[in-house]
Design a protein around this nucleic acid. Structure first.
Length: 572
RNA sequence: CGGGGUGUAGCUCAGCCUGGAAGAGCGCUGCGUUCGGGUCGCAGAGGCCACAGGUUCAAAUCCUGUCACCCCGACCA
């Protein structure tokens, strides 16, 4: 492929809006062009990478025994109402109306539609187990698209769904998907760690995310150096610092003028933050909830939501706080009525805490659960932090930032029951299928590949996803000897089944070398009068610093060998 | 939706405070030059200064509103 024909337009400087490395390189290398927030056009060069990623996914999914299907992106809204998720997805669901006023949604995911297809095709236990997948465009009206390709409003997802007769065989389907994912990420050159995760809006049981650890990530991951436990912060189990021991003392009202925050009150009264009781107000599915937690801890809203069995939890707005007569800055569960009081176990186990007096500028000392206040519900709803103890081995947990690349989880029978996916078992009894579901974000993977495979000069593609195997730079292409050598190089590469991008532009050598580094093909071949004098073409690998001059055929063979070795051993 | 920031040429940005003929570098087109790490010269094309309203003799510049985009939070692949 000649570079002139590929519409490769590199940028010397990245547009100001790009902050993430991957975003900057995507734009500078001319792989994508932004259209609107969360929407990108792919150029011929960028699309080749996307297709390579999809090829890897397809190969590994097929190898795992999954079957590729294709489902519409346009969904009748009734399907979403049937599952109950039309309301759950809220504004994230793009909605539209056809000419007959029938309502549709643009699919943000496909549990509903795959269930429809499954309900029409699965009849007997003899049809099971089966895993169906597709690589399809998803639409989500995200509140905040971000980071270039990290969070899009229209994106490509490989989504797979397994159907089993029971939980035991679901485990096998889940494990097969899990193994396929590990192969996919390894081949694509994205280092990932599997972490325990919350199953989120889709619901279900066991759930794991494949997370690419990077400072650019939007998720917080807790890792245990002792036993290898890894979990998303919203899911992570841990042991908070222990409470201070002591005998229950009589409650006492103290004047705390102008002291509102935990830090202020603790300092004023000469106690540690873990000797205080923090009050936080939420609305769970629009209903007010009073949350009590030890002062040194923060509320994990996902755990709170799960403890309440709520669909949605959001911080209470100031107006509602006032209307309910809650005293922000001096609130405690003492004497609170008319709303549930959810307490973290930390608040229940500690003794003699300092809490609000529910009147401005006053606090109470020596509050004790059971005596001074009573929780409606006690649960573990605190957010894990770096340094907290691992639940399994007691080691201090570490935190890292990460990007969720893929998610696998066990759905169970929820969708099967709502959407009518049943089979007849050996005894002729009608049973719901036990489902699992598995997703990978394709564009996000592209961004992660760049985050994980670049240097100061640009992208350094892993062989499997590189848009071309070799970048051929011609210097002095006007000279017949160079032009002839160029043809030899091209045919030698082609003879090995290698794809080459030939820089035939009429630019200076410096520009061509800079662009070759930026665009990042694994191998670079330079053809010039100088190289011909030395006996052939110069071969250099993007990740190496040495170069060698070889006859065209030998150079092509060396590229083929390097490629084969890299593919055999996994990407460098 | 809450908080912060930015909108001037394809890209990076000056100009705005203090109103008075729209600029630079890069990129693009043409000619020449150069030819192993973003050559050099000459000549060009390219802007409704985000949009709307207002103030003024006069608005990129001052005022009001709107929109878009980016960043931080709540959500997800």
């Amino acid at each position: 492929m000649r570079m002139r024909q590929l519409l490769v337009k590199t940028l010397r400087e990245a547009p100001a809006e790009a902050e993430l490395t991957s975003h900057r390189l995507l734009l500078r290398a001319g792989l994508v062009v932004p259209l609107a927030a969360g929407l990108y056009c792919f150029t011929p060069l960028g699309w080749r990478v996307v297709r390579n990623i999809e090829r890897i996914i397809r190969e590994e999914m097929n190898a795992s025994g999954a079957l590729e299907v294709h489902l519409p992106a346009l969904h009748p809204i009734e399907l979403w109402e049937q599952s109950g998720r039309a309301a759950l997805m809220g504004q994230t669901l793009f909605r539209l109306t056809d000419r007959k006023e029938r309502e549709f949604a643009l699919g943000p995911t496909h549990e509903e539609v795959i269930s429809y297809l499954a309900s029409r095709t699965i009849q007997s236990y003899r049809d099971l187990p089966v895993t169906l997948y597709q690589i399809q465009t998803k639409f989500r009206d995200e509140p905040r698209p971000r980071g270039g390709l990290i969070r899009l409003r229209e994106f490509t997802m490989k989504d797979a769904y397994s159907f089993d007769t029971g939980w035991d065989t679901l485990d096998a389907s889940y494990d097969a998907a899990f193994a396929a994912y590990q192969r996919i990420f390894r081949r694509a050159g994205v280092p990932v760690v599997p972490v325990a995760a919350d199953s989120g809006a889709i619901g279900g049981k066991d759930s794991q995310e494949f997370v690419f650890l990077t400072d650019a990530g939007e998720d917080t991951i807790l890792l245990c150096p002792g036993c290898g436990y890894a979990a998303n912060a919203e899911k992570a189990e841990f042991v908070p610092p222990p409470p201070l021991p002591g005998e229950q003392a009589p409650a006492e009202r103290v004047h705390t003028p102008g002291k509102r925050t935990i830090a202020e009150v603790a300092a004023f009264l000469g106690v540690e933050p873990r000797q205080t009781l923090k009050a936080v107000f939420y609305r769970a599915d629009s209903k007010p909830v009073f949350v009590a937690i030890r002062g040194d801890l923060e509320v994990n809203e996902v755990k709170l939501k799960n403890a309440l069995g709520a669909r949605e939890v959001e911080p209470m707005d100031d107006a509602t706080v006032r209307d309910l007569g809650l005293v922000a800055g001096s609130a405690s569960p003492v004497g609170i009525s008319g709303m549930p009081i959810v307490a973290d176990t930390s608040a229940v186990e500690a003794v003699n805490l300092v809490g609000g007096a529910n009147e401005p500028d006053y606090h109470l000392r020596n509050l004790n659960h059971g005596r001074d206040w009573q929780a409606t519900l006690v649960a573990e709803i605190a957010l894990a932090r770096a340094g907290d103890a691992c639940r399994t081995c007691g080691s201090p947990l570490e935190t890292r930032r990460g990007i969720e690349m893929g998610h696998v989880f066990k759905l169970g029978t929820l969708y099967a029951e709502k959407m009518g996916v049943y089979y007849l078992d050996e005894s002729g009894e009608r049973r719901p299928c036990v489902m699992g579901c598995y997703g990978i974000g394709v564009e996000r993977m592209l961004a992660a590949i760049i985050e994980a495979n670049h240097d100061a000069d640009g992208i350094a593609w892993p062989w499997e996803v590189a848009p071309f195997d070799a970048h051929v730079v011609a210097i002095g292409a006007g000279e017949p000897a160079v032009a002839e050598a160029l043809r030899q190089v091209e045919s030698a590469l082609a003879a090995h089944g290698l794809e080459a991008l030939v820089d035939d532009r009429d630019d200076s050598p410096g520009i061509k070398f800079k662009d070759a580094d930026l665009i990042g093909m694994p191998a670079r071949l330079t053809v010039s009068p100088r190289s011909l004098e030395r006996g052939g073409v110069e071969l250099r690998f993007r990740r190496g610093s040495e170069s060698a001059v070889l006859p065209a055929a030998d150079a092509a063979a060396a590229v083929a060998k390097a490629r084969a070795e890299a593919l055999g051993a996994g990407p460098a």
